[in-house]
Design a protein around this nucleic acid. Structure first.
Length: 420
DNA sequence: AATAGCAGTAGGCCCTGG
DNA sequence: TCATCCAGGGCCTACTGC
């Protein structure tokens, strides 16, 4: 999800809407519910979506949750808790389809839809009274449509602000509807544990516990300065405001992404420099293709390396000019990787490539440096994109990525497996 | 005993250029 | 010329959440 944007400046009249007109709609056990819907023989059984020998649980039916299975839990542990569970691999294409249909339902009642993920969104339905009825009417209608059109259940929180609506939907799961009127917000919030607040994860919860703060009410009774000292100026002030029910954020239709990346955990830890270089090339190709698909170019390239002991480092470099070219990204990532491993080379568990500082790709006038020849790499990418459109994603890839030929990864003379 | 693949922000540190 | 301060950018880690 996207972290909360900065609270908008308050308009005269106080913090946010004075009526409960914000909806948070959250699908119940989304991936698992889609899997069961599409394979009815699974109904009633514990089902876990996830997999891979080193994967985590992406979603689990309530039957599986009864055994203690939770999302983000390592699969090995989940299987231990619930050996009878049916394990189903994820099908992201399918989830995207269903997601689009659901979001369309939301947009039928208001243009103010802020998707948080495939299965969850905020809606501001304050403007729809005349056409669609009260926020509660609208919430019921949405739940009905999703049930009949998709055969799926969702839970809806209705409140005067986004974060209260979010907590409300979580408290009425599954298949629930919970309305928090403005004058009941504080009574609703204060008994809840601090972790119920958006932005309080395990670390922050620990820090608060050390101060003897356990509930949202405790936060509200703590001086803002104490919180700021313990959690930092930003987070401290933010939590203090939330605990008093103040949340100036509005529901804004999606903003643009500020970065795109690709990363992968390998089925076994890697040491082989050639293999690592090939993986870097593959990830670079994926990032570049996604940039081109959005018509964007990036000025900052970063890599992420997770070692066998789970320690993680990132390295980044800003380019002289934006790029969407596979080879430029690969070369940069390779240099960063080289520098990182100049001194020591622990086994690699995960590798990632990310592109940031995005701009519209445009046909920027490109000044060739003295020692630079027109490389033709952009043309290679264009041809690749075209072939993939016609013949499918798997139709084109660099020779070094062909399964039969674990050779050296393509061109960069300056950087290649020979030097790793 | 095991820990995905994304994405985002905050805060600390260092360097650079007035 | 040197010391000092400050602002801004870049980099990195830590944390959060779906």
């Amino acid at each position: 999800m996207k972290p909360p944007p900065e609270p908008a400046p308050l308009e005269s009249g106080g913090p946010g809407p004075s009526d409960s007109r914000i909806l948070h709609v959250d699908m119940d056990a989304f991936y698992a519910s889609v899997a069961v819907r599409d394979a009815p023989e699974l109904r009633g059984r514990p089902v876990i979506v996830g997999g891979g020998n080193r994967g985590v649980v992406l979603s689990a039916t309530y039957e599986a949750r009864a055994f203690g299975v939770r999302s983000a839990m390592p699969m090995a542990r989940a299987r231990g808790l619930c050996p009878t569970a049916v394990v189903v691999p994820a099908d992201h294409g399918r989830y995207r389809e269903v997601s689009r249909a659901i979001m369309d339902v939301f947009r039928d009642v208001t243009p103010l839809v802020a998707p948080i993920s495939l299965d969850e969104a905020f809606l501001d339905v304050g403007g729809g009274r005349r056409l669609f009825g009260t926020p509660v009417d609208i919430a019921r209608a949405i739940r009905g449509r999703i049930a009949t059109e998709q055969g799926l259940t969702c839970s809806v929180g209705v409140a005067p602000s986004m974060f209260v609506a979010k907590i409300a939907s979580a408290r009425c799961k599954p298949d629930g509807l919970l309305v928090v009127p403005p004058d009941e917000v504080l009574a609703f919030l204060h008994p809840l544990p601090t972790a119920a607040l958006w932005g309080v994860g395990p670390r922050t919860e620990q820090a608060l516990t050390r101060l003897g703060i356990r509930t949202i009410g405790d936060i509200a009774r703590t001086p803002a300065d104490t919180l700021r000292r313990a959690l930092g100026a930003g987070a401290g002030g933010h939590l203090h405001a939330l605990a008093h029910g103040r949340d100036g954020r509005r529901v804004e239709p999606d903003g643009v992404d500020v970065s795109v990346g690709a990363e992968e955990t390998f089925s076994a830890d890697l040491a082989d420099p050639e293999r690592l270089a090939r993986e870097l090339l593959r990830l670079s190709g994926r990032v570049a293709a996604r940039l081109r698909a959005r018509g964007q170019a990036a000025r900052k390239i970063s890599i992420k390396v997770r070692h066998a002991d789970f320690s993680t480092v990132t390295r980044a470099r800003t380019l002289a000019e934006p790029t969407d070219v596979t080879w430029v990204i690969y070369r940069t990532a390779g240099e960063l990787f080289d520098e990182l491993r100049a001194t020591s080379r622990p086994l690699v568990r995960l590798l990632g490539v990310r592109a940031a500082r995005l701009s519209a790709a445009g046909r920027t006038s490109h000044q060739l440096a003295f020692d630079e020849r027109p490389s033709g790499w952009a043309e290679v990418d264009r041809a690749t994109d075209g072939a993939r459109r016609r013949f499918g994603e798997e139709s084109v890839r660099p020779a070094s990525l062909l399964p039969d030929r674990p050779r050296r990864p393509a061109p960069p003379r300056e950087w290649g497996p020979g030097r790793v």
